[in-house]
């Protein structure tokens, strides 16, 4: 074990009443997380039982002090090399459940150990000084997401916006038009909730959609669709291989939206046609499509609650397949009547 002891930096955040402590001795690990959660920073913790994440920089994989018991079992595995030219987060991994601890092994990158019952996660990152900030954010966010689940805050892989107190969720994998449709609405006056990780919370009578504002990642292709992105300065639209990233408030006259009731869920896919159109989806089909974007069963009690939250969400919204054509900038006109119906 050659973790060099340095003074610890401790950062505090508050996410909708859930207090989070982030402790690390490595400035390389502190800065990206502090930036990632910049909307949630706070000086002093208010709860005696915060979630705590310790992230450690190690020099070698052998320095990671994680021992896996013989009763551990594998939950998931993704094999292959880290993608050349692909997203920095496209990593091989193995996920193991060991006596209530979730262990995500990213091989040459590091290991995350999440003990949800204790509200604690440890991240061991190998040579993080060589990692892009986006990868450190990603690993931190994975651990945080697992801890938040147990506190009733569920992350969904979607973009999210708000208008007049009504939320629009656009879930989906990369390449289906998720960020492009999101930007088309954002530039027309919708308020920003999240580019990729909004939170859901069960409010009893309904599900709340909560902002999780982070940098917006865009591909070169997406940049090409929007004049303001094409002409944005490198200071605003920063390189973030293989994409570029910017803060919504730097480019659009928008503010971060408030906690709201979701009203619409759009499942986009790109079509080769001049005009976009919408197709109403049966709710069972919508839930079926949504589940892979949100729910991973690691802890069955938590998964049970999360499943019910997602089902409740789908019951309270209208769901559409968005066949997304080349009229990208016209999307707000297509969506407006749907939201008006829900007012």
């Amino acid at each position: 074990m050659t973790v060099v002891e340095r003074p610890l930096s401790e950062l505090h955040f508050s996410l909708y009443g859930t207090q989070v402590r982030y402790v690390t001795a490595s400035p390389v690990l502190a800065t990206p997380v502090n930036e990632f959660l910049r909307h949630f920073r706070q000086e002093v913790l208010q709860s005696s039982v915060p979630l705590t994440l310790y992230f450690h920089a190690v020099d070698h994989r052998a320095d990671i002090p994680v021992i896996i018991s013989s009763s551990a079992h594998q939950l998931a595995i993704k094999i292959g090399a880290a993608g050349e030219g692909g997203p920095e987060t496209d990593l091989p991994y193995e996920v193991i459940l060991d006596d209530g601890r979730l262990i995500a092994d990213f091989f040459g990158v590091g290991v995350l150990v999440v003990d949800s019952a204790k509200g604690r996660a440890d991240g061991y990152l190998i040579n993080p000084q060589m990692m892009p900030d986006g990868l450190i954010e990603y690993l931190f966010h994975l651990a945080l997401t697992e801890l938040l689940r147990r506190r009733g805050l569920y992350t969904i892989h979607a973009t999210a916006l708000e208008k007049n107190g009504r939320g629009v969720l656009i879930p989906g994998n990369s390449g289906r038009g998720k960020t492009t449709s999101f930007l088309s609405l954002l530039r027309s006056g919708y308020r920003y909730l999240s580019d990729d990780h909004p939170l859901l919370r069960d409010a009893g009578t309904h599900i709340d959609l909560l902002p999780f504002p982070i940098k917006i990642n865009v591909t070169e292709q997406t940049v090409g669709f929007f004049p303001e992105l094409r002409t944005a300065s490198a200071e605003v639209l920063q390189p973030r291989f293989p994409k570029r990233a910017f803060y919504a408030e730097d480019l659009y006259p928008t503010s971060t939206g408030d906690c709201c009731r979701p009203a619409l869920v759009l499942f986009p896919h790109v079509i080769d046609a001049p005009h976009s159109h919408l197709e109403l989806l049966p709710k069972s089909r919508a839930l079926e499509i949504l589940l892979p974007q949100a729910l991973l069963v690691y802890d069955s009690e938590v998964a049970k609650r999360e499943f019910q939250v997602l089902a409740k969400l789908i019951k309270q919204v209208d769901c559409y397949r968005l066949h997304f054509g080349r009229d990208i900038l016209e999307l707000p006109q297509l969506i407006a009547p749907l939201l008006e119906e829900r007012m």
Binding site: S284, L287, A303, A311
Partner: peptide, 23 residues
């Protein structure tokens, strides 16, 4: 171990022991 929810007459099932779901 199976969670179920009814959506407009159809039922979505989630098997918590495997993480698989069915309609």
């Amino acid at each position: 171990d199976v969670q179920a929810t009814n959506m407009d007459g159809e039922t979505v099932l989630l098997d918590l022991s495997t993480g698989r779901y069915y309609t």
